[in-house]
Design a protein around this nucleic acid. Structure first.
Lengths: 150, 150
DNA sequence: CAAAATCCTACCATTATAGCAGGATTTTGT
DNA sequence: ACAAAATCCTGCTATAATGGTAGGATTTTG
C-alpha cells in the first residue's frame, strides 16, 4: 500500500518549484540540492511530470522547469497517478469498466471499490496550493485535533 | 499503492471460512479449491492469520481452520495489517510517534497523514460481517448510486 | 496404525523499486 | 562564434519484495 519514492519525490518536486519559482524556470540542480535528492534520479521523475504536462521545461542557460498552471489548479491525485500509474488498491479496478470475470460474484470487490473511492475522493480534493500554504484543516480534516504533535 | 495478493487472499480466506464454517473446522484444501488458490501459498498466508489470532486451527483428521470470533467482531484494517505489515502510504508514518527528522518542516507530511487517516477510518469501520452479508451501503457509501454496474 | 490434516523450514523465479552513467542536444550570454 | 549551462535520451544495475514451490515432520481421529 506504499506510495513509491517516485510518487513522493514527484510531489516534492512540484511543491519545491511552486515555492521557489516566481515565474522563473527552476534548474534541476537547485531542486536536487534543496530536497537532497540525486540529480539523475530526479531527472527521470521530472521527465514523467513533463510528459504529463505538469511542468514546462526550457533547455539551455537560464533554463529549468516551471509549473504549467497555478498551484490551485493541480489536484494531488492526478500528480500521483502520473508516476504511480494508478492509485487503485487492487488490479481488478485499475481499468475502469473492465473488471475480472468473477466480479459479479466477488464478495470483496465492493470493499476494494469503496477504498478506491475514498482514496480518490481525498487526494482529488487536495490541491498543490493546499500543500504549499500548509492548509492543515483541509489535509487533516476532522483528525486535526487528534494530531497536535504534527 | 497496491494491496498485495497476500492481503487480498487473507481477506478472501476469512470470508470463505465465515461463509462455509458453521462452527466446524474448514480444511485448507477445501478453501484452496473454492477460491482457486494453491494449497501451498494459502498455507503460508493462513499461518500469518493464525499467529495473529484471527483463526484457530485443529490438526489431524476433521481438522482445519475456523474463525476465532464472530464475523462482526473483525475489522478489515486489522486483518490487512497482519499480512501487509502496515497500511500507511509512506514510511515516515509507519511507526506511530516516531517520525523522520525532517517531519517538523515537511510540507507533504500532513497530506500523507491525512491519507493514512482516511484509509484507516474506512477499513477500520468495515467488518468481516459487512463483507459476508454484502453490505454495499456501508462499503460503497455515498458512491453507491454511481456504481450501479457493480 | 493408517489416513487426514496442519505445521515448519527452506528455497526460488520474476518483477518492481530505486538509482546511476554517459553522452547528445539545445539555448543563452559574451 | 563559441563556451557554458542546462535539459534530454538511452541504457544499465543492484537490491528488495512479491508470489509461489518443495519436502517432510507432527498431530489427531476413526
Amino acid at each position: 500500500m506504499m506510495v513509491s519514492t517516485k510518487g513522493r519525490y514527484a510531489l516534492t518536486v512540484m511543491v519545491d518549484i511552486a515555492k521557489n519559482s516566481n515565474g522563473e524556470y527552476v534548474p534541476l540542480a537547485d531542486i536536487a540540492r534543496r530536497e537532497n535528492l540525486s540529480n539523475k534520479y530526479l531527472e527521470s521523475i521530472i521527465a514523467i511530470l513533463i510528459k504529463g504536462e505538469m511542468l514546462i521545461s526550457l533547455r539551455g542557460k537560464n533554463g529549468g522547469y516551471k509549473l504549467s498552471r497555478e498551484p490551485k489548479d493541480y489536484n494531488i491525485s492526478k500528480i500521483l497517478k502520473l508516476t504511480e500509474g494508478t492509485l487503485a488498491p487492487v488490479n481488478c479496478i485499475i481499468q475502469d469498466g473492465v473488471t475480472c470475470d468473477k466480479a459479479a460474484t466477488c464478495s470483496t470487490l465492493p470493499l476494494w471499490t469503496g477504498l478506491d473511492r475514498v482514496i480518490e475522493n481525498y487526494l482529488g480534493g487536495i490541491t498543490l496550493e493546499d500543500i504549499v500554504i500548509g492548509n492543515r484543516k483541509k489535509m487533516l480534516g476532522d483528525y486535526c485535533d487528534k494530531c497536535s504533535a504534527l
